[in-house]
Design a protein around this nucleic acid. Structure first.
Lengths: 178, 178
DNA sequence: CTTGCTCCTCTAGTCGCTAGAGCATTTAGG
DNA sequence: CCTAAATGCTCTAGCGACTAGAGGAGCAAG
């Protein structure tokens, strides 16, 4: 919030020069990526070498923040860090063909589609289980029964992938509160 | 299918008694759960204490194999091990109400539905990116551009959950080959 | 007796973070 | 100027659900 640049301590700088360097906290706020995650990305080689202050604190310029935003969007779309690394490298060399970027995005699209159809099959199966259940005793429970006897199950493991979805929002462990 | 289990738990010699004990490998083949995964499940407390041979090898009876199949199905439907533990406990006490099982399945169904809609949003965004790309140089690449500028992106992080899908099939790391 | 298979335990790696310990530095207020 | 709070630093460990591999033991057949 506080814009303490009210006193122009610098000659050439207006009130906010585009190359102003910010702390990791400010970069986190600006990019929407959490502080420890930023450090993790740096460690993972997704960020170029960052300058440091005398006191060893990282400094982030506008370009670094943009990179973080790029990474965040890519993660939101489910790209793996490996893929993102490649995409960032491509971004750094604008003259190259974007075929590789297309391939990565296309592959991701394929994954997403495969997962959607797998999840739909799953949804159908679960819905059927839940609906069919008489809500009585476990002995008659369709849910348990279906899990026990695959005979009742018309779902057979449409190979999806391994993991899914970042979506930073979700944090369903209850807040610290103490 | 194999309906030969008609014989009740019984002494007077069938040629394949239903309580025949098998090795972990046989149990793996019978249940569709991999050997190390079975050991992992045991460690995780999903299996009751198993008898061992003199030579310290685990022995699996028909009930243990059934339990493994149950676990496998539940995993295929995306239930977490914690939930599966609960479901197994319920299964072991058939007189109880199945309300809890219903709740677990219902919660899972909700998750799946939420994830499907999140993935659909994602699919739309990715498809748009890929389609819009002129397949030229990186400088003009819509894929890269969309990731860089959220302005071009009408997708905003529909909160899904954290991880998704077991589906034992997938193994996409390239083979060792060296 | 050797070969080859299965099995045992144990450790460490995967992925993308997140949490916390134990310090150093910076900043705001008095 | 001093102090307290906030923020930063590094490092380690943990999550979930496995998977991979080392190094050794048991066991049946040839």
């Amino acid at each position: 919030m506080s814009n303490r640049t009210a006193g122009p301590a610098h000659p050439a700088s207006a009130n906010k020069p585009p190359d102003a360097l910010q702390s990791i906290g400010a970069a986190a706020r600006a990019s929407g990526v959490k502080v420890p995650t930023i450090r993790f990305y740096e460690e993972a080689g997704l960020l170029p070498p960052l300058p440091r202050t005398e006191g060893n604190r990282r400094l982030y310029g506008a370009d670094a923040v943009k990179r973080l935003v790029f990474i965040r969007h890519a993660r939101e779309l489910g790209f793996e860090l490996d893929a993102i690394r490649t995409l960032l490298q491509l971004q750094d060399r604008p003259d190259q063909s974007c075929a590789e970027a297309d391939a990565i995005a296309g592959a991701r699209l394929g994954e997403v589609r495969r997962r959607i159809s797998a999840l739909k099959a799953l949804e159908a199966e679960l819905a059927q289980m839940v609906e069919a259940c008489a809500h009585g005793r476990v002995a008659d429970c369709r849910v348990i029964e279906t899990l026990a006897d695959h005979a009742h199950c018309r779902f057979h493991a449409a190979a999806a992938g391994p993991a899914e979805m970042p979506v930073r929002a979700a944090k369903r462990r209850q807040p610290p509160k103490g």
